[in-house]
Amino acid sequence: MPDREAEINGGVVVYEFVGPDDGEVVVITPGGRFSKDVGGLHELAGALAEGGKRVLLWDRPNCGKSDVQLYGRSESHMRAETLGLLLRQLGVDHVLVAGGSGGARDSIVFTMMWPGLVRKLAVWSIVGGTFSTMTLAGVYVLNELRVVRSEGIEGVLKMSGPAGGWADLVAANPRNRERLLDLGTDGFERAMNRWLDAFVPKPNEPIPGVSDWEFEGIKVPTLIIRGGERDFDHPKRTSMEVHSLIAGSRLIEPPWPEDAWERALEASFAGTGNLFDPWVLAAPVLLDFFKEV
């Protein structure tokens, strides 16, 4: 299906549907600042579509072809608000929510913020713990703060990176240059300072920017795929912590090898594969979970 656009909170969000028009909608959200077109994502969407689902893939704000947006308590909270408003605009009354890595965090926050829209939640490769949380501070915020403080917003416009940088967002969507310039050096720095708080490790936050008590708000059936044994970016411990905090959730063994993330990273860096290639292996367990009454 071709890309479609919707305006949410003054910014364009690019999205597409995969699968039959009459299928129940599944929203898939990836990690990083990767677009919906990142390798591995359409393969998972296609497998779910073959199972009768209508899959919504979307470029979150600050990803792919969508407009840059910088507001809210954290980037995940901003994206969760955007997704809820997008679904309302599309007339979708309920969804099955699925996400991995940063997309797991976005999906969890979305379920907390829009409980009436979610029928079931499935997440995997959940970021948490000191190492991975501090790593994300470097990926998403700290370099931005260094650059904006030394070079201003013009320096930010030159930033690029493997997980998607601001220069890449401008290349994919030229509107983003003016949007960043309009925000300006001070506005960008204020947003980064605010978003940094989510990535300061705290003992009461099993995942970045989300406190223990907030998980009580998740009342829907939830499937959690356990993190790999030595996946330091998405620790096994974190998936077990989230499982313990969501009443009635189910924790299952990963449908991919224990070192799938590490091998996918290597393949991505070598140009022989994609970071999210293993995710298609989750399609059978996701479809089974979604079919349960």
Rank of each mutant, 00 (worst) to 15 (best):
A6H: 04
I8N: 05
G10P: 12
Y15Q: 01
D21C: 05
D21N: 12
P30A: 09
G40P: 04
A47F: 14
L48E: 10
D59Y: 00
P61R: 03
L70E: 06
S76P: 06
M78V: 00
M78Q: 14
E81F: 08
T82G: 03
H94Q: 15
L96Q: 11
V97K: 06
G100A: 14
S107F: 05
V109C: 14
V109Y: 03
M112K: 13
W114A: 08
P115T: 02
V118D: 01
T133L: 13
T135K: 00
A137F: 06
Y140A: 02
L142H: 07
N143I: 13
V147Y: 12
V148Y: 01
S150M: 12
S150R: 14
I153T: 10
G155F: 04
V156A: 09
L157D: 05
P162D: 02
A163M: 15
G165Y: 04
A167C: 11
A171D: 15
A172F: 06
P174K: 08
E178R: 13
G184K: 07
D186F: 09
M192E: 14
A198M: 06
V200M: 08
P203A: 11
W213S: 11
E216T: 11
K219M: 10
I225P: 00
R226L: 13
E229K: 15
D231F: 07
K236G: 05
T238S: 11
T238P: 02
I246F: 06
W256Y: 11
D259V: 03
E262T: 14
A264P: 00
L265S: 03
E266W: 10
S268K: 08
G271K: 02
T272S: 11
G273W: 00
N274K: 07
P278H: 06
V280G: 12
A282V: 10
L287G: 06
V293C: 05
